[in-house]
Design a protein around this nucleic acid. Sequence first.
DNA 1: ATAAATTTTTAGACTAATCTAAATTTTATT
DNA 2: AATAAAATTTAGATTAGTCTAAAAATTTAT
Lengths: 219, 219
Amino acid sequence: MHSFTEENYIKAIYKLLESGDETISTNAIAEKMRTKAASVTDMLKKLAAKKLINYQKYQGVSLTGKGEKIALNIIRKHRLWEMFLVEKFNFKWDEVHDVAEQLEHIQSDKLIEELDKFLNYPKTDPHGDPIPDAKGKLLVRKSKSLSQFRVNDVCIMTGVVDHSPAFLQYLDKTGFQLGNEIKIKDSVEFDKSLQIIVSKKNTFFISYDVAKNILVILK
Amino acid sequence: MHSFTEENYIKAIYKLLESGDETISTNAIAEKMRTKAASVTDMLKKLAAKKLINYQKYQGVSLTGKGEKIALNIIRKHRLWEMFLVEKFNFKWDEVHDVAEQLEHIQSDKLIEELDKFLNYPKTDPHGDPIPDAKGKLLVRKSKSLSQFRVNDVCIMTGVVDHSPAFLQYLDKTGFQLGNEIKIKDSVEFDKSLQIIVSKKNTFFISYDVAKNILVILK
DNA sequence: ATAAATTTTTAGACTAATCTAAATTTTATT
DNA sequence: AATAAAATTTAGATTAGTCTAAAAATTTAT
Ligand SMILES: [Mn+2]
Ligand SMILES: [Mn+2]
Ligand SMILES: [Mn+2]
Ligand SMILES: [Mn+2]
């Protein structure tokens, strides 16, 4: 069908397009794929020939319907496997990504159907990211960054922006979990750091940088 | 570490060596890998450079200790995944092989440890094949082909030689399962076909070809 | 022991994915 | 509008894995 490499490019393009732009640049893809712009151009030609992307020289890239469907299917598999690893195999949320990067390329419709059933059709992955359904439908989240709220707002933690093990481990150590209630007690104007109360018990100071990377909804 | 292709060659070499020969030929590997002898020679040079095989031009191939360890680990993963698919994901024993061929290349020690634990440390896979342990230790089976037994012998079915979906589906349809008792009621000298009684209930006639592909131990 | 047949290796070419360096196009600045 | 800077594409190589055709080595048959 498509090579692992093609799948990874498609996924990278999808994720870059999530930021809202109509098209994305060759350089942006190169950076995300940790490769060189010249390599990206070669691949763009190939993906365009397969009608997975819209591409005209120098004019940026977007996904065709076909390309988007493939991207969503890979993301579906990635997130289902992450959920599986955490729920059934005792992985921590900071340990699942690299294995899921491999598992997302396994080809078997029955496998994914059974995986979904086995997990009882989860709506989100261990990081709070929504899981596309079998048809490629993806719920749009209305979560916002904690940094956008104000003193006395009470929120529920629903996800993270940064998925790095370092950040996830910091959250673990500090005691943040998805579903926790977070009340903003104070805000420092100088550096935009926050004083917050988690689950009505623990008071913390967090930097603006941390607040930006925590996704919440208003309670 | 090693590419999928290298892993598949190593596994193919291991399986060919199981037939008992000290070394195996380039052509045998080419046939098993469905590739050409010239391609095999190239790969043999690479594997020899990595000290995974013993290889001298024109003299045949065997695995080094290092190579054998890698082969056993891939086989371990393959068989654990097959067991997982049958036990947890409602796959039939004729449906698991192709997916396991993909899953066997996933790299994660923790994943395999947890998989083994999740299955409660199975000793054999859905086809009755033994699963190497984490150290690469493999139980040698003393099963023999049903065709080697005589009238009035009572056996227990422990495995199959042919793993093709066609043969496995034939066994399903006829009602053969691992663990079944098989008593040989009659033997036709002309074509070596057998009349057998399965689980003390059902009487069948099976060809020599089928009998050869059923593994049993004497009860 | 020679010749014939078979097996294996080498030589040279192809594809996918990558790279560096050079050329081209687009965008930003004077 | 012309020039400078940045982004993108092209040209030409490289590596892994494969292939066909030809050469070399080994095995089998006479
Ligand atoms: Mn992930
Ligand atoms: Mn995730
Ligand atoms: Mn198998
Ligand atoms: Mn098996």
